[in-house]
Design a protein around this nucleic acid. Structure first.
Length: 280
DNA sequence: ACATTGACCTGGGAGC
DNA sequence: TGCTCCCAGGTCAATG
């Protein structure tokens, strides 16, 4: 569900509310989310601990304390809402964290996830700092951190990959943060067909693609993320980037560049949207 | 090592 | 209205 821009938005919101605050309580309402909640481990890492920083790695948010970090992944339908109220007013609220801000004010972090594909987990200090936790250790590069070197990384990693370029972009061991929406959007902007094999993309095409990935993600962050269905930021508000999408869920509608009808294909079990006329 | 598929869940929309 | 079927911003284990 949320891809890099959405998680980045979330991190900014949680950082604003939680930096310097202290975890004072946690209540678990449901333990059997994707991985059974490690209540003991979570409590050990956060309770009575001050929040030192809030960071993002790929689609994971990490809320750090002196003892380690609380890891959050929203899966497809998760929300993480900063609320003034502890009352569980939303269906599928699985965990509520109570924090006390520096001002003494209490805030409540609600983890809500209907489909339960998300994750809430503890990481030790070492696992959090060296990113060696099981969920973090195999993640590929951060597109926005690599900048102008991104194309070279993608180029090198793809030389022997006979999978489609779109599927390759969504491989989190290569590159993090690009999911189903932004993979389609970046390829449209770069005028590259999602159906082509990764190894067949030449250097100049990969430069174009890398540049468009960075632009696509950055613009989506600036627009507050993309809300198709479930995504909400930490204030429980939708983003506005869905209004700017060129191809995602626009099949049969005219291409914004050449007016040919946008097509839909299925790759690795996921829908891909593209213009067969101007993406080559 | 790499590619593909199915499994994990609930909710909403389309079609009958 | 109500039913069934299909689809959805992601990962990961299992299989070839």
């Amino acid at each position: 569900m949320p891809e890099l821009p959405e998680v980045e938005q979330l991190v900014v919101g949680v950082r604003a509310a939680a930096s310097g605050a202290t975890f004072v309580d946690v209540t678990f309402f449901r333990e059997d989310i994707r991985e059974p909640l490690d209540k003991r481990g979570i409590s050990d890492v956060i309770l009575d601990q001050k929040i030192t920083q809030v960071t993002r790695r790929g689609k994971y948010m990490l809320i750090h304390t002196k003892r380690g970090a609380l890891g959050i992944h929203l899966g497809m339908s998760g929300r993480f809402i900063v609320d003034d109220c502890s009352r569980v007013s939303r269906l599928h609220t699985h965990v509520v964290f109570s924090i006390q801000q520096k001002t003494g004010e209490l805030k409540y972090l609600h983890f809500v996830d209907p489909r339960r594909f998300g994750r809430v987990f503890p990481a030790t200090k070492h696992e959090a700092e060296s990113l060696s936790h099981t969920y973090l250790k195999n993640l590929g590069v951060e597109p926005l951190e690599l900048g102008s070197n991104l194309w070279k990384h993608l180029f090198d990693q793809s030389r022997k990959r006979s999978t489609a370029i779109k599927t390759f972009l969504m491989d989190s061991s290569v590159l993090v943060g690009v999911g189903n929406i932004y993979a389609s959007e970046s390829l449209w902007r770069a005028k590259i067909s999602p159906l082509r094999l990764a190894k067949d993309i030449d250097a100049s095409e990969m430069k174009r693609l890398a540049k468009e990935i960075i632009k696509t993600l950055s613009e989506a962050i600036a627009a507050g993320g993309t809300t198709f269905r479930d995504y909400r930021n930490s204030d429980d508000k939708p983003g506005s980037n869905q209004d700017k999408l060129a191809v995602y869920e626009r099949d049969t509608k005219p291409c914004k560049r050449c007016k040919a009808p946008i097509e839909k294909a299925v790759q690795a079990g996921r829908s891909t949207y593209f213009c067969a006329f101007c993406q080559n």
